[in-house]
Structure formats: C-alpha cells, structure tokens
C-alpha cells in the first residue's frame, strides 16, 4: 500500500503557497497534518501530481486573540486546542469537540484548516465551526476573501475553496455572555468518525430567558446540518418541553444515509436524542439564573 509518485514542494511563505497553487491549476494538493490525505494517497485513492507541504509556513501556525474572539491559523494543531487557555476559556465547545477527534497521534499533527478543507461530513471541526459561526479566510494570489462557515461546506468532501485558494485562517467571533455549550457524539469505537455529532449553543439572559440558540449536526448529511431552533426557544425559559420540541425538529429535517455502521433510522433517532441532551446541557451551562 504505497502512494503513486508525486512532485513535492515545501514553501515557507503564504505567497509561495499561492504561487504554487496557481501554477498547478488544481493538480496541486495541500498537505497539512496529513491525517486524512495520506491514507488516501497510500491507498492510491488520491493521485495528485504535486503535493504542497505547508507545514513549514510559520505564518499559518498561530492562535491570536481578536477582541473577545480568536483567530486560528490554518496550521493550528488540533492537540494545541486542548492545551490553550484562551480556547478553554472562550470556546469550551471547541475543547469538547476536539476530544472526540481520533487519538493523540492524529491530533498532534491534524490541523484546523486541514479538517475543514477536507470536509468530511462526520468530522467534528466542521460541525463545531458552523455552530460557532466561524468565518473562514480563503487566500490566493488573487487576494483574500471571507467565507462564513455555514456557506463553506458544499457537499461531501467539497468546499467553497477555489483550486488556487488556500484555507488561511478561521476567525471565531466572541460568544455572548451567558452562553452554554455542549458537543455530543456517538461513534462505533472511541475516536472514530461520528455516526451522529451534535453541537449546541444556548444563550440566556439574566432572567434565564433564551436569547439565542444554535444547533448543528454532523454525520447525518453531506455537510454540517444547521437546525433552525430559535423560533422554538428564543424569548422564553427553555423548558424540557421546548427543548424536546427543538430536538424533534432536528430529527425531522435531516436526511441521513445508511451504511455498514448504522441505519438511517438510527441516525435520525440518535440525532433527536443527542440534540435534546446537548440542548439540555447547554441550557444548564448557560446558567438558568432564575
């Protein structure tokens, strides 16, 4: 099980990456952490003419505060998200999600940008970034543009990136005070891709009234599935009944598929269960102050 031959480039600046992408016209593949790409290369399921290894582009590996938000360079390692204080304080949802990613060996090299650009529908980071309302910066020799995470994922393993574009960074906006979170996942084994993953964020005011709610599901369709639950939750105390109603919407709107690991019916059922549990936890963490 060995890859086909390819040309190898190891740029050290973003500009060089842009130039290489432009000159290969879609035949160049970015190599970041390699945890998804290299298995495909080894199995000869991917046969790019050129590999552009961005691991030495220091300008892509950073984690900056941005007001109350954060900006993550594309090359931010997943493991570093578990070890960073600002991430833990500002985005505990992200920490909870990253704990579900594979194993230490994968997180040590796997990157934020790589996971998003790979766009596996059962991966944790795409779901989380959509839930956090992240904004992805795509850059190329032509310039840079911002893409909201919820518009970034187009289909299974397909994103809004153009062939000459690099996923450069991800900007996480600040969460409102009083926001609770929960990330839940069911998989066959520890560390496997999700059969169903759910990210929930609920914001409550001082009276405990829900002011915002976001629910995003993974593993149940070609892209992270945003479930619109605000109408059911905002403006009231998020009671168990209201949460259950919101969870039912999650079960109703998705179109999951069957595979060797789980039936579509199971995924739909568990999506509802996890949505209810995640919203419940998020509500509790949001602090029902009354």
């Amino acid at each position: 099980m060995k890859p086909v031959a390819f040309d190898y480039y190891r740029p050290t600046s973003v500009e060089e990456v842009h130039a290489l992408l432009a000159s290969h016209g879609g035949g160049g593949k970015i190599l970041a952490g390699g945890q998804s790409l290299v298995p495909l290369l080894n199995m000869r399921l991917a046969r790019p003419a050129a590999i552009i290894d961005i691991n030495r582009v220091a300008a892509l590996e950073y984690l900056h505060a941005n007001g109350d938000g954060l900006v993550l360079g594309a090359l931010t390692r997943q493991q570093s998200l578990l070890e960073n204080r600002a991430v833990a304080e500002r985005y505990p949802l992200l920490v909870e999600a990253v704990r579900y990613i594979g194993h230490r060996q994968i997180r040590n090299w796997g990157t934020v940008g790589g996971s998003l650009a790979h766009a596996d529908p059962a991966a944790e980071l795409p779901v989380t970034m959509v839930a956090l309302d992240a904004e992805i910066t795509a850059s190329s020799a032509r310039g840079a543009r911002a893409i909201p995470a919820r518009e970034f994922f187009l289909d299974t393993l397909t994103t809004a990136l153009e062939p000459d574009e690099l996923l450069a960074s991800v900007r996480l906006p600040a969460l409102s005070p009083g926001t609770g979170w929960s990330f839940l996942e069911v998989s066959r084994r520890h560390g496997d891709f999700a059969l169903v993953a759910v990210a929930a964020l609920v914001t409550r005011d001082e009276a405990g009234v829900c002011t915002d709610a976001r629910l995003v599901l993974g593993g149940v369709g070609p892209v992270p599935q945003v479930v619109e639950v605000r109408d059911l939750l905002i403006g009231q105390q998020p009671t168990p009944d209201a949460i259950a109603a919101a969870a039912d919407v999650a079960g109703a709107v998705i179109e999951p598929a069957s595979d060797v690991h789980a039936t579509a019916e199971y995924r739909r059922h568990v999506a509802r269960v996890l949505a209810r549990r995640a919203l419940t936890t998020a509500v509790e963490r949001a602090g029902g102050r009354r």
Partner: peptide, 18 residues
C-alpha cells in the same frame, strides 16, 4: 450487536415506537 441494532430492536419490541 451494534448500537444501531439495539435501538432498532427496542423500537421493534415497542411496535415501531421510538
């Protein structure tokens, strides 16, 4: 015996009710 089957069996036993 997978989680998917367990949930399916329970639903079957309940007469299709989730």
């Amino acid at each position: 015996i997978t989680p998917s089957k367990i949930v399916g069996w329970i639903q079957q036993a309940r007469g299709g009710q989730a």
